[in-house]
Structures are given as C-alpha cells and as structure tokens.
Design a protein around this nucleic acid. Structure first.
Lengths: 211, 211
DNA sequence: TTCTTCATGTAATTAGTTACATGATTGA
DNA sequence: TCAATCATGTAACTAATTACATGAAGAA
C-alpha cells in the first residue's frame, strides 16, 4: 500500500459508520456532527473527500443516484472494508490527545490582567455546561427509545459516560480555579501559589498512581 | 496583517515562553516537551519554524551565536510581542478539543472481538497511569523547590490540577468500562446496554447541568 | 416568485508532520 | 578515537481547513 493511500483514523471513523449502514455523504456529515464530532472533530469537506479514498482502495462502494439534475453518491462498505475495520480494532489506538487553548492562556496569565484570567475560566465553565447540555439531550432521547441504532447503545453508552464525566470534570476544575484566581492580587505577576491546594493535587495524583 | 502572517495559537504558545526569558530553539523544544506538550502538542520542527514568523512580524528578535562552526539562534520577545500576547489573553480562546482514537474503537466495537475492546480499554488505562506518573514527578520537583520558574507556580499549579483530575477521570472511566465489557457475551454484536449504569450517567449529567 | 435553507460538492491554502542531513559533545 | 547522543536545522509531503460555487426543496 503506497504512502498516500494509507488509512488514517479519519478513514476508519467513516468506515465504522459505513459498517452500520450505507449513507449519502450529507448523511455522513450529519451523523459525524451528532455522534463522533466530540471525540474526532473534522471539517465537513473532509467527509466528502475521504470516502473516495475508501472506494479507490476497494473498502467501500459508491452508487450515484440522481436528485433532480444533480447526482448524489451513496457509499456502502465492502467485505474488504469490514476486514480492514476489524483489523484496526485489533490494533492499539492512540490515547486521548488534548488541545486546550484556554489552559494555555491561564498558564501565561502573568502577561495579562486578573480579569482576563477570570473571563477565560468563565468561558471554560460555560463551554462545559453547554457541551453537557447537548450530551444530556442525546441520552434522554436514547432512554426514550428514540435513538437511532438501538443495537449500538451498549457501545455508545460507554462513550456517553466518558463525555459526561469529562464535562463534569472540566466544569468543576473551572469553578475551583476561579475561586483561586479571585484571591490573586490585581497584578497576576504577584500571584503566589496556594500550598494547601497544591498538596491536595499531589495527593490526588498519588491516589491515581497507586491502585 | 496579511492572511499568511496571522498568528496561530502555536505562535502565542511560543510567544508566551519567550515572555518568560529568551531561549534557543532547542531549549524551546525542550520546554515545550516538558510543560506545554500535554495541552498543546506540536512537532519539534514546528518550533524551529514558527519563531521565524514572530521575527518577521517584529514580535521577537533573533540573535545568532556561534557554537563551533555552526550558528545557533536565540530568540527574545519584543515590546510589540508583549502587547500581542496581552491582546491574545484578553480574547476568548477555544475550549478543550479532544481527539480520542481508542474511544472511536470502542464505539465501533461490534465489528471486532470482545478481546479487542478489553485490550483497547487496558491501553487507555495504562496511558492514564503513565501520564499521571510524569505529572506527579513534575509536581514533586516543584514542591521540593526545584522547578524552574518558581514565579509561575501559581499559574502552573492550575494546569497541574487540571491534568491530575483529567488523568484520574480517564483511568476511572477505563476501569468502569472494563467491568461492563467483561460482562458482554463473546460476540460484541449481542451486547446489551446496562440500564442502571446508563441511568447513573444521566443522573451525573443532570448534576452538571443544574448548579 | 423569490428568499432561505438544505444538500453536494470543488479549489485554494495552510498548519503541521515525517524524513533527512549533519555538526558538536561526551563517554567508553 | 569512535560511537552514541545532543543540538540545529531544512525539505518534502499531507491531512485538514476555509472559502467558494451552485442546484434542489420548501416557505412566505
């Protein structure tokens, strides 16, 4: 398999969706937005482009259907595609990768104002509450039996718990940090560490280290 | 400011480091690896390339020093650079962005074996324990007064707590999920949802939603 | 009938990565 | 003195994003 045709995690994400059922590209973007975006965010245009690679490799088939004068493409997984997907599931994937600009801003807070830091933390907290809200709406729909793909609920509920705990953790952290920053002097350069809470952090980390 | 010269978050990350003191590019890569990698991971080569942009924009200055026959570059922030940094701190940054391949694999577990899913979860748990270990080592060094930049401990300890709680959360989730997957039948396609734990997830999310 | 939103893409650009190259330093 | 590792980059490539374009369907 040549260099440019190696599958990426994005390829497998799409292949995984195609394993559920065939989709038009537009449906793929919808589904990606509803379910996978939180753990694998990708631009819409990528989802129009990537399936072509799957077809070129024989992992998916494409069918053109006319909608008025314009064609639309429906993609379906092939047997070879299912084998590739199974093979991926047997490989050790990457652990979570985090990119967190707001935390970067907090790290460099001494170059701005105390108000800047507080505003950043408020934005973080609001973000967590909002994500949680969306998440909750999905969970309620599932419990009411409305969710698509009831047969995949066992798997999806594992991801749902992860996100729930993740958003809760981010919110609690933002609130805790806000409490500390409020006690900073007006000039963040004069802020000093809060030793008790630093010791608490170490205690928590030690609890995670020792089973 | 033309399109190609707009600053990215990576630019500001480097500018933030330069605000602490001047660095050679190699020192920048070291520092990035020790401190910022967990919340803003970037390849080494980027850290050789990006400071040039800062210089072109007048946000940093570069000094060539010879080391034997080979030159090395030391970068330092300018007054204009400090203003740009302060301006960034006043803007609302992005919330945390997560990419989590292993969770994707769990989501599509019905296409593989139960053992695949268990192995993936074991890898996630091991990842969390290992990251936590590194984190703990840094915290211990700080508490012992060995950390560079004691004047930035107040800010860094906020980030330290975030990572500590994050790794703990990931580890606990992986253990919880392992317990559920162990109860799956051998064929993951026959797995059914565990209703009590799904309800517990909803309760947790509701707690986060209501203050 | 026209405006808006849904749907279906392509083109241009870029941020970032992987691979490569080589000088300097250190320890066996 | 030679091998390994530290240090300093450049070049080639690519995965992904942003911007653009336009047809179809439904609402006012």
């Amino acid at each position: 398999m040549s260099r440019g045709e190696r599958l990426t995690t994005t390829s497998y994400a799409i292949l995984g969706l195609l394993a559920v059922r065939p989709w038009t590209t537009y449906e793929l973007t919808q589904q990606m937005d509803r379910s996978l975006r939180r753990v694998w965010p990708r631009a819409k245009s990528k989802l129009y482009e990537e399936p072509k690679k799957l077809v070129a490799l024989g992992l998916a088939g494409a069918t053109e259907e006319p909608v008025g004068r314009r064609p639309r493409t429906v993609y379906a997984i092939t047997a070879k595609g299912r084998r590739a997907l199974a093979e991926w599931l047997g490989r050790p994937g990457e652990g979570p990768v985090l990119e967190f600009e707001q935390l970067l801003q907090i790290s460099f807070a001494e170059n701005g104002t105390k108000q800047d830091a507080l505003a950043t933390l408020a934005a973080t907290r609001a973000w967590a509450v909002e994500q949680n809200e969306e998440n909750l709406a999905v969970a309620h729909a599932y419990l009411a039996g409305e969710g698509l793909f009831q047969q995949r609920v066992a798997q999806n509920s594992l991801g749902g718990r992860f996100l729930t705990d993740y958003y809760a953790m981010v919110k609690e952290w933002a609130e805790w940090a806000t409490g500390l920053v409020e006690q900073w002097p007006d000039d963040p350069r004069r802020a000093t560490v809060d030793l008790p809470s630093m010791r608490e952090t170490v205690r928590r980390a030690e609890r995670t280290a020792r089973p």
